[in-house]
Design a protein around this nucleic acid. Structure first.
Lengths: 247, 247
DNA sequence: ATTCATATATTAGTATATTAGTTGAGGAAA
DNA sequence: TTTCCTCAACTAATATACTAATATATGAAT
């Protein structure tokens, strides 16, 4: 028989203060989250190649931890579709679902037409300057032929537009949706000459936002992302074992 | 020393057949997935109320399993934002993030404008008949004042349009995004008289699709979903402890 | 009565052990 | 040679055990 009264299990309308205090370590420094971030980077960068097996035990020993946090990380990646778990059999890097790529691009296009339109409605001068600065960074990366920096600035531009629109969560959603497209592009396109084209497409988007022309911005964004669809259609059969195509 | 050669750990371009065979139990009958589904239903139906604590151990004993599968289920729900985990402190049903609701509705509106437009472009006669049948089901549910059946048919209508558009994955994405809005509506609106209004809004959508008028369908869908935004703005302060508002 | 410190119960995170299912190489049978 | 069976070695799924951090009830000090 417990000598103390049981802990409060009531509905708990907890004060905000309590929640702040409780957030001392807000669940980001755990072993599981570190392994998740590392693995995810390896998956989208194709360091781990589609179809390749993944061993929980091996990763666990590599990190010097038990299988439990590794498993937590892998389950999350499984939800994102980056790995496939076959019960009692094995875990494998998921092949790129080429058939599903057009749909994800449609989704992205739909959402970014909205952010572009709203950005044109709400942009402040300082926000416009920030976007200009990002494009300038792209020009520098292009001149230096630094693909990594260019890609980073490219993402910043799109994220920035979502933020200007007042809905940064839309970009976070797009990030989740477009992972397989990213893997596909990393695999197929060397995209050296593409960089200047991308800049040439970004400029009118920003110009229309600056002109407070919602529909112009929307259209410019739409044609920019339609290029993505074209890229996909040229299916590269260089590494067919990386793709999940119904042949 | 193992007497047999080690298992193949090479890249593994596995044949399709092997993957089919391997999928004997495709990871849906596990304890973890069952618990996940049950808990999720309890969360969206508000059987478990926002702010309420959740005990891993208690659920484990209730299901007669260990904490491990329960934990797997809860981690997944945490990714979806339905529960909040405070390390070494406790797990709580997440409060409804009212501030984030408009954004999710914007996302839904953006995506469904697209599906409505594309449905108008691609619909076949049989698909149109199916959509008509769904609306008829809504009329029956409305007459019978069966809110559950009505809600189900409502979701079928929107899912059906996405399917007619050729992109059913868009509806799956919307389902993920709109969970908190669903919880909000379940909590605030009795929505008795709403049913006939919803039908009156669905009809023009289908009519425009039938007329092969993409922009008309898009506009009809847009005004239908704008109603949702209006509903949210009338913030009910009946149960303030259920909401995560910055006061 | 109120505040403060402390002890204890409870928690999430992680480690380790066990269970049960799958695979695929060998060998037996045809 | 070809087909089928067997079995050892792997795997994911689950169970159990432990650790460290947190929160709250209790009791002492004011």
């Amino acid at each position: 028989m417990p000598s103390r009264a049981p802990r409060k299990l009531a509905p708990a309308p907890r004060p905000v203060v309590a929640r702040m205090r409780r957030n001392g370590r807000p669940r980001g420094a755990t072993a599981a989250s570190r392994i998740y971030a590392d693995l995810r980077a390896e998956l989208v960068s194709l360091v781990r190649r589609p179809g390749e097996p993944i061993s929980e035990a091996q990763i666990a020993t590599a990190y010097g931890v038990s299988r439990t946090p590794v498993r937590e990380a892998i389950l999350k990646l499984s939800d994102e579709g980056l790995v496939e778990i076959f019960p009692q059999s094995g875990i494998f890097v998921s092949r790129i679902p080429v058939a599903a790529l057009p749909e994800t691009i449609i989704i992205r296009k739909s959402l970014e037409e909205t952010t572009a339109r709203m950005a044109a409605e709400h942009a402040t001068s300082s926000q416009l300057l920030t976007l200009h600065a990002i494009i300038e960074r792209q020009r520098e990366a292009c001149a230096a032929k630094d693909r990594e920096a260019f890609h980073q600035a490219d993402e910043m531009f799109h994220a920035g537009i979502a933020e200007v629109a007042g809905y940064p969560g839309i970009w976070k959603l797009i990030l989740q949706v477009k992972v397989h497209v990213d893997r596909y592009r990393r695999l197929t396109l060397p995209q050296i000459g593409r960089m200047s084209e991308v800049i040439a497409e970004h400029e009118p988007i920003l110009a229309e936002i600056e002109r407070r022309n919602p529909d112009g911005a929307r259209a410019a964004m739409a044609s920019h992302l339609e290029r993505l669809l074209d890229d996909i259609s040229e299916i590269q059969t260089l590494n067919p074992e990386y793709f999940d195509q119904p042949t």
